[in-house]
Every structure is written in structure tokens, then in C-alpha cells.
């Protein structure tokens, strides 16, 4: 790991101030940044430790929803009654992420900033990867890519975003709140990650020195669920994941929001399917057809055709699970 200099921010204002230094990175939970520095994904000259910033870790009700401070630890968010009862999809997504130890470190604000798990991107010694070295090519495209994208990829990058919580947040239409010396922003989670067609080198839309300060959830979604598919039962990234939030009229879906994870460089909302799901019973045979509407745009790689089938099945299943919630 290249050495760096270190500063502790005592407040949000101080963090933003320090964040204006050249080649600086914010350190929240550290579960990603420290590994990036080890592998050489990122070698900032300066690190700003946010651990002592006060007042950014609350989970609280706001008008029409809940606001989660960016520095709230994942385990605390998932087990907070406001989340566990009001937004089970988010609680489940978090509790299926990583391990109990990592969730004690990782923050809800840092989590969406997680970078891809493509093995070429994560190679210690560096492999051709446009996210590691723009212009160096995509080793996965010509190599092993059977855990890669089925939506929204280009020949410059076929990786998927691996994190669980953003899939739930995308299904909930949550908003990421940022601050920056030149003004903060409200960024819908659905638009936070950058598709390779927009820029293959980027992961997200954050600017230098921009700090995520919170995440805002709209109205509670008690009928919601998260499904994570992986080879082993725990402590593993998703092969495919699915989040659903339903509003029901008796036994019939009034409104459905469904997002898939690990299928694209961002959580993938099944917009076309959602429109067709309204008016259906969650276990109706027509649900499969409704979901298929969103798979018209699926474009599997040679190695990911199986993931199309899996993602379709996962979407159908998570709707059942959400209806039972």
C-alpha cells in the first residue's frame, strides 16, 4: 500500500473542507477503501477519516419517509425498527450482505460507492480493465465472464455492480443526499451508478470532494422482500439478486417496484414489467409474462445466457416473497 497522509474530520463541515485537498479520499467504514489501496485500485495521497464526524448516523422519520445518516453502520440500519418493519426489503438486503463483522464497519453511505467485483478489476497485479486503466481494454469480455452483465453492458465493460443494499434502495426509489462545498445534490439511487455507455471508467456520479451525507426513503414498503442467489449460503456476493416492493389491493397488485442486482452496472429496475404487474395476483401465471416484458432488452454475453433465465425466475420468486411479507 502506498503511504498516505491522514486527517480526522471532526464535523461534516470539516470533512467537506478537508475534502478539497488534492488526491484525497474519504474513509468511512473502510471495508472497501483499504482494500483498494492494497490492490492499487486507488492510491490517494490523503485520507480523511470520517469516523469522528458527529450527527451523521441517525435513522429517523422525516415527512413521508425515513432518513438514514450516511455513517450509520449497516447492521444498525438493518436492525433499526423503522427499517426492519417499514422496509423489510432493505433490512433483508443488508443482512444478506457480507458478514456480521463487515456490516459493523461498513456504512450505508459508503455501501453504494462499492466498486465492481469483476476478478480482472480486482487483480492485484492489474489486468486489462477500463475501470482500472481507461483504454486498457476489458479482459472479461475475452476471458471468463459468466458472472457478468446481462443488461446495459458495452464492449468497454461487462461488469456488474455487486452491492445488495442499492438494489433494495432502487426498488424503494430512495434518494442519495450529498454535500459539497459547491452545493449538495439529491441523487436517485437508480441514477447513482454509471453505465458503461455513459462512461466505462466510472462507477458512480460523485464528484471529487462530494460527500454522501444520507439516504432518504419515501413512504414505508412493508410488503417488500429481497432474494439473494449465491453458491454458498452466506458471506458471498450475489450471482443474481432481486428486490420487490408491492402495494396490494386485496389479493391483487396495485403497484409493483422490482429491481435486479448483479445483472448490470447499476440496480436494474424492471420498468416494463412493473406496469404490467398492476392488477395481477402475485401468484398468477401472467406474472411470468409481465416479467418477460422487461427481458426484451436483456442482452446476455456468451457466458451469461443462464443468468437471464435465473434473473427471470428470481424476479418472479421475489414477487411471491414480497406478497407474503
Amino acid at each position: 500500500m502506498r503511504d498516505f497522509s491522514y486527517a480526522r474530520a471532526g464535523s461534516r463541515a470539516e470533512a467537506l473542507d478537508l475534502g478539497q485537498a488534492d488526491d484525497a479520499a474519504f474513509l468511512a467504514g473502510g471495508t472497501e477503501l483499504i482494500n483498494w489501496m492494497r490492490i492499487g485500485i486507488n492510491a490517494p495521497a490523503r485520507v480523511i477519516d470520517l469516523a469522528r464526524v458527529e450527527g451523521l448516523d441517525a435513522v429517523e422519520e422525516i415527512e413521508g419517509g425515513v432518513r438514514i445518516g450516511a455513517l450509520a453502520r449497516l447492521n444498525d440500519v438493518a436492525q433499526n425498527p423503522l427499517i426492519a418493519e417499514g422496509y423489510p426489503v432493505l433490512s433483508h438486503a443488508i443482512l444478506r450482505a457480507a458478514s456480521a463483522q463487515i456490516r459493523n464497519l461498513a456504512t450505508i453511505g459508503g455501501n453504494p460507492v462499492q466498486r465492481v467485483r469483476c476478478p480482472y478489476f480486482r487483480a492485484n497485479e492489474g489486468a486489462p480493465c477500463n475501470k482500472r486503466e481507461p483504454g486498457s481494454g476489458c479482459a472479461a469480455l475475452n476471458g471468463i465472464h459468466d458472472r457478468h452483465a446481462i443488461f446495459g453492458w458495452t464492449e468497454d465493460c461487462v461488469a456488474v455492480h455487486p452491492a445488495d443494499p442499492p438494489v433494495a434502495l432502487a426498488a424503494l426509489d430512495a434518494v442519495i443526499v450529498t454535500d459539497h462545498p459547491e452545493g449538495g445534490r439529491l441523487i436517485p439511487v437508480r441514477e447513482f451508478h454509471v453505465l458503461p455507455s455513459q462512461n466505462p471508467a466510472w462507477h458512480d456520479v460523485l464528484r471529487a470532494g462530494e460527500l454522501i451525507v444520507g439516504i432518504e426513503l419515501p413512504a414505508p414498503a412493508p410488503r417488500s422482500a429481497y432474494l439473494k442467489i449465491r453458491e454458498r449460503e452466506s458471506y458471498e456476493y450475489a450471482t443474481v439478486s432481486a428486490a420487490a416492493a408491492l402495494e396490494m389491493d386485496g389479493g391483487v397488485i396495485r403497484r409493483a417496484r422490482v429491481a435486479l442486482g448483479s445483472v448490470a452496472m447499476r440496480p436494474w429496475r424492471l420498468v416494463a414489467a412493473e406496469a404490467r404487474l398492476a392488477g395481477l395476483a402475485p401468484d398468477a401465471p401472467e406474472v411470468a409474462d409481465a416479467i418477460d416484458a422487461s427481458f426484451a432488452e436483456a442482452r446476455p454475453l456468451s457466458g451469461t445466457e443462464w443468468k437471464v433465465r435465473l434473473a427471470r425466475n428470481a424476479a418472479r420468486r421475489v414477487i411471491e416473497l414480497a406478497a407474503e411479507a
Binding site: A13, G183, V213, G214
Partner: peptide, 8 residues
């Protein structure tokens, strides 16, 4: 703490 009041 919400964005509308974020300190500039």
C-alpha cells in the same frame, strides 16, 4: 440535516 439545509 436534510439536503435543503446543507451548509454551503
Amino acid at each position: 440535516a436534510s439536503l435543503a439545509h446543507a451548509r454551503q
